[in-house]
Write a protein that binds this DNA or RNA. Structure first.
Lengths: 342, 342
DNA sequence: ACCGATTCGCGAATCGGTTCGACCGACAAT
DNA sequence: ATTGTCGGTCGAACCGATTCGCGAATCGGT
């Protein structure tokens, strides 16, 4: 069922059907109705490939996600969901590309096969080969996260450094002197994952400025690791009375370990950080934390991309989110008995 | 950069370039090398739309996921990840369509715009409008899950009915007489979600046959609901000593509620069901449960679909998985003190 | 030196849309 | 009556690949 068949049945030419459909030229009321009737009866819909070929755009955008081998965190899932939803709102489809490494086939297909009008890249590294590749091809793209050289591309990011700094300040204000940072996984940080680096930098800055003792530990993005890392932390650094974290996937494990150690939050231990809202709210007691607005991030990323696509050459735009730290119930004064100083 | 440009630079015709690329006709060693060199230098890759138009296939498959508004469960996420990964293995891209309702724009685009060669539909209902729609269009598709009339389509499903029956039998063998089923959300079951219905049927069958008292409750797919439903269960049916569940998202909440009620598993309470492996293993104590092989399901779904695409007209195939119930540590003899009978 | 057979390459048609230029009739202005 | 404008329609070119039919060059065999 192609446009020629519709034209024949309606007794007009193919171009008239096209114009009736797009409205780019006037078509008389009567023929338009006739054409619409035929289309409805035949259940016709234009072939996406043919249209993409002629128009030079696919009405599709690419979403580069971390490889499926490593489980996606809840927050990453939220990004994906919100991007897909926001794209659907403006009638764009989303093509998924699970690729982290340098030369990924699906990534290359996406980028050089002109399968998409633009790309959203998740989990950006400070030095990111994919960003370089996209820059070469002049394909519009936006990052969820930013590279070490952020000015030349559009991105949206959460200000992990600043937020973790403020978390540490908050804990210091409460009298905590020995504070731990629970970071994302070691591999991720080692490979130059921005939030990990910036959170660490913010942590170290605050620890130094407030004259605290800080210990930073990496932790894989899952509950089991969270539990194990917390046990290790207790064993090696019993003087630590509070943690700040950007690793929400580790939270349930931490919660369990706390219970196992017979510790009550916030009486015996304080915990805060930067995590997705529903994790903060699910924690017992609810977490004092900066809520990452994952849903908003996905939606704004699509906006940014759509802008780049619609008007190429637009200077890149940046959105740096620093959501407020929601004061809930997981932080309190440092316990006296575990203090090592006066 | 199109095939004509490559042809010009290599001093051959466009068809020769095409044949050199596809290997469908012989091309002399020397010209082939020359063409390859030019292609490598220019970084050329065929335009996907043009190829799709001519070949009549898009090398893309559609994945219909539940609408983003309702959070995806971990298992659903595993399906998505494994489908994407399996598709990438055989150089297929995946287009996402978040659609549950009847007339979803993105679903319609997918189906009638010939954007994909085939479709995988998640979260199939007993009566499913999307399945009907796909049948009309003669587009190859496979379901993760099956409708009430399953013979006419390809699907892969988990035998929730049978597995829940066996879970109940296992609990009955241990002396439990009052058993609860924690089902998926009320809306989901009400809308004819297969696993919910079949699990309930299997539950009722076993309860009846073993002469037990059964109570079945629906529970939204999240931790908070799990905790609340368990509290209600304790309040209304204190005689219940064991639960079987297919709602893995509720497990952390149930675990927390158990702890809050001061109950130890399996001494005071037994719990089993059909859930993703990593949930079963994370539960404390580890869950005796049928492990849903989410990864395998995604991969086999892609296989099934690929088969349908490659040889249209192939009779539909069905895969019904009944993974073994892995005996771990969450089920034990019914506690004496809470028994109401002799 | 001539004859198939084989190898290699080219030109043109095709897929299904969009869009540009041209045409035609009706109607207003001069 | 002539010219100009405009709404409505059509034919043809085009997007970038694949593929079929055809012909030129080469080669071995006689």
């Amino acid at each position: 069922m192609d446009i020629g068949e519709i034209a024949r049945r309606a007794g007009v030419s193919r171009s008239t059907v096209s114009y009736a459909l797009s409205g780019k030229r006037a078509v008389s009321e009567s023929t338009r109705r006739r054409i619409e009737k035929v289309i409805a009866e035949a259940g016709y819909r234009p072939n996406a490939a043919a249209r993409a070929l002629k128009e030079g755009r696919t009405r599709t955008l690419g979403l580069v996600i971390p490889p499926a081998s490593q489980r996606l965190t809840d927050m990453q899932l939220d990004f994906v969901a919100s991007v897909v939803e926001a794209a659907a709102q403006i009638d764009l489809d989303v093509l998924l590309s699970p690729s982290g490494g340098d030369h990924d086939r699906s990534f290359e297909r996406l980028v050089t096969g002109r399968r998409v009008d633009g790309v959203i890249v998740m989990e950006i590294r400070l030095e990111d080969a994919r960003v370089e590749r996209l820059r070469q091809t002049a394909l519009p793209f936006v990052g969820i996260g930013r590279t070490a050289d952020p000015d030349s591309m559009s991105w949206i990011d959460v200000d992990y450094g600043n937020l973790i700094t403020r978390c540490v300040d908050h804990l210091a204000d409460l009298g905590h002197t020995h504070i731990a940072l629970i970071n994302r996984s070691e591999e991720l940080v080692a490979s130059g994952y921005g939030p990990g680096h910036r959170a660490l930098a913010g942590f170290l800055e605050a620890v130094e400025r407030r004259n605290l003792t800080g210990v930073d530990v990496c932790c894989a993005d899952d509950r089991v690791a969270g539990e194990a890392r917390f046990d290790e932390l207790r064993a090696r650094h019993p003087e630590v009375t509070a943690i700040a974290t950007i690793n929400e996937a580790a939270l349930p494990g931490i919660e369990r370990a706390l219970a196992r150690h017979g510790m009550t939050v916030p009486r015996d231990f304080s915990i805060t950080g930067v995590v997705a809202q529903h994790w903060a709210e699910y924690f017992r007691p609810p977490l004092t934390a900066a809520d990452v607005p994952a849903h908003e991030i996905g939606a704004r990323a699509v906006e940014l991309l759509q802008e780049q696509i619609a008007t190429p050459g637009t200077p890149p735009r940046h959105i740096l989110l620093a959501p407020p730290i929601a004061l809930r119930s997981s932080t309190g004064p440092a316990p006296r008995m575990t203090r090592h100083d006066g």
